[in-house]
């Protein structure tokens, strides 16, 4: 059964048709890649899932409940978690705090006045956070203020912040953009490792190496419409896809 069902989504920005009749079914446990040229509408589509944008028409169902018209924090609490294209982290806080905060959202809910509780009473959260920092390879810098991190590290940190929430559906917008080859590979390994935990993922990616080493299914978006969908091998040979990429050297 599909964990995420997107039906006939349309989104216009003024005169610009960013999404047109988009249909998408993401199977539970799948790693579903969305690829397409710049400006195809990939980020826009993800934004429609997390409440950042509301589609003009169409529906987005997650586990048979609609994601439209509810607040971002409710979507997150439902288990849909997003990594942004430009890393969104708490720049003024330490790495450890950055990872602990999402863990609190998971354990304490959307709001709780724990104003009298000492942080040290929450060792379970600290331990979990340290564990995640180890996973993403940032444990050495746990007490560093985030604004001094490199872009690649910020991405990894954000990934860690999302992972600690044990999401049901993880949305990744270009998780490896701006990373070196080595970093990219370690991120792929990390993502594969999460794959073993059974988290469903939607990945937007330009790097075909990443796409083909991770994806179990691929949708191709061009000018706001899905022009092809299928298993990685089917997509590789699809002439429509190569055309969309104009020269399609990457494929």
């Amino acid at each position: 059964m599909a964990i995420l069902q997107v039906t006939d989504v349309n989104k216009n920005f003024g005169g610009l048709r960013a999404l047109h009749e988009v249909n998408l079914d993401v199977e539970e446990g799948a790693v579903h890649a969305i690829i397409g040229p710049n400006g195809a509408g990939k980020s826009t589509l993800l934004n429609c899932f997390v409440g950042l944008l509301t589609p003009d028409t169409g529906s987005v169902m997650f586990n048979n409940t609609s994601l439209l018209g509810i607040k971002p924090h409710e979507i997150n609490q439902a288990g849909v978690v997003r990594v942004f294209q430009t890393p969104q982290i708490f720049e003024d806080l330490t790495l450890l705090e950055n990872v602990m905060i999402p863990a609190f959202a998971k354990s304490d809910g959307a709001f709780r006045i724990n104003a009298w509780q000492r942080m040290r009473q929450r060792t379970e959260i600290r331990d979990e956070a340290e564990h995640i920092l180890e996973d993403v390879g940032l444990i050495d810098q746990r007490d560093v203020i985030c604004s001094s991190l490199s872009r690649g590290d910020k991405r990894r940190l954000e990934l860690g912040m999302c992972l600690i929430q044990h999401p049901k559906l993880l949305l990744l917008d270009e998780p490896t953009a701006g990373m070196s080859r080595a970093d990219t590979n370690s991120t792929i390994d990390l993502l594969k490792k999460i794959g073993e935990r059974g988290i469903t993922k939607i990945v937007i990616e330009h790097d075909m190496h990443v796409v083909f080493s991770l994806a179990t299914r691929i949708s191709v978006l061009a000018q706001g419409t899905i022009i092809a969908e299928g298993k990685p091998d089917d997509i590789k040979g699809n002439p429509k896809v190569q055309e969309a990429y104009l020269g399609g050297a990457e494929i």
């Binding site: 997390v50 950042l52 607040k71 971002p72 924090h73 997150n76 609490q77 978690v81 997003r82 942004f84 969104q88 982290i89 708490f90 720049e91 003024d92 806080l93 705090e97 602990m100 905060i101 999402p102 609190f104 959202a105 998971k106 304490d108 959307a110 709001f111 709780r112 006045i113 724990n114 104003a115 009298w116 509780q117 000492r118 942080m119 929450r122 912040m161 929430q165």
Partner: peptide, 25 residues
């Protein structure tokens, strides 16, 4: 120094992130 205080600091740092992290700010 409480978790509550940390949430407040996080709101100052990046309120959007807070919302997408599942907090009702």
């Amino acid at each position: 120094r409480s978790p509550f205080g940390m949430m407040l600091k996080a709101i100052k740092s990046n309120q959007t992130r807070m919302n997408y992290t599942g907090f009702n700010t």
